[in-house]
Simulated scan of single mutants.
Amino acid sequence: MATDPRVPTRTRSLAPLRAVFSVAAMSMMLLCAALPERVGAYVLEGPHVLDLSAKAMGRIAALRVNQKLLVYPRTPEEAPTVFDETAIYVMPERFRSDIASERIQRTHLVFADSSLTVIDGRTAVGENRFDLYQRLLRSRSRPRLIRTLNQLGVETAISSLGRLDERVVFVLGARYPDESVSQLAIDKETFLPVRLLLVEGDAEAAGPSLEIFYDNWQKVQSGWFPFQVRFTVNGRLAREIRVADLRVNPSLPSALMDLEALKASVAANSADTPQGQKQEAVEAVQQAVEDFQKKFE
């Protein structure tokens, strides 16, 4: 068969090979887009991600937040119980939340690594896992983010790429899609935290998981703050926080954020109670504590 002298034989022989390489390259690009977690070479290291996240969240000195706390029942047919809650952030060490209703009076106060919860004038024993959401919001530097996450059981040296709903996220603490260990998901575009997963126990005997979703981030002076926080337990919506309004750098009495002052107040109220009424009061408060905690299980 005659060969067209106008087309070099070498060029014609390479054309099918180039087509194969083009198809292979396109397939690889599509695979990388569909499975970002597999492209380990492009994953930023955990401390670098947290550095960018801290810069994205920005600096906020103090906040007073008026918010609605919705506690959802186990049966979806029932309406949630709604509490008016005030939350105060004094970055980075202090946090206080107050619920005052006809059903219960509750104060939760945090200073550094110490905390105290008072329900109906009596100290409650043990920390409620639902109160942990604010730790991340107070951590706005890389060292503090690393410290906070390590305390919550997140291994910040591990990072991977994954998907959460329709967004690509950095996953710190796990190799996506592993959800058997505690981890934090950070939006790849905004570098804002979007989900904190807390798992009790180890990978072989994992207990109930608590997911905390940080939604609707809004600009607050030189920083960002989520106006909605959702909590799910083993996939079930258990509670939700909706910010009604907030005030930046409010004037706060010093005793309001003082852990020792709150302890002294509890002790004084207990001392003022007549001896004959103390046992009944303790039993009533204990029942109130148990009823309140059951709402969050």
Rank of each mutant, 00 (worst) to 15 (best):
A2F: 11
P5A: 12
R6A: 08
T11E: 08
R12I: 06
P16V: 03
P16R: 11
A19S: 09
V20A: 11
L31I: 05
C32R: 14
R38G: 15
L52W: 09
K55D: 10
R64T: 07
V65A: 02
K68N: 13
T81C: 01
F83M: 05
E85A: 02
M91P: 08
P92A: 08
R96A: 11
R106P: 01
A112Y: 04
D113T: 15
S114H: 13
L116I: 15
L116D: 05
V118T: 08
T123G: 02
A124N: 13
V125W: 10
S141I: 06
T148Y: 00
Q151A: 15
A157Q: 14
L161A: 14
D165W: 06
F170V: 01
V171D: 05
G173W: 05
D178G: 07
V181W: 04
Q183T: 08
L198C: 02
A205T: 11
Y214D: 00
G223S: 08
F227A: 11
N234T: 03
N234L: 03
L237W: 08
A238S: 15
E240L: 07
R247N: 05
P253C: 04
S254A: 15
A255W: 13
M257P: 09
S265T: 09
P274D: 09
Q277A: 06
A281Y: 07
V285S: 11
V285Y: 01
D291W: 00
Q293W: 01
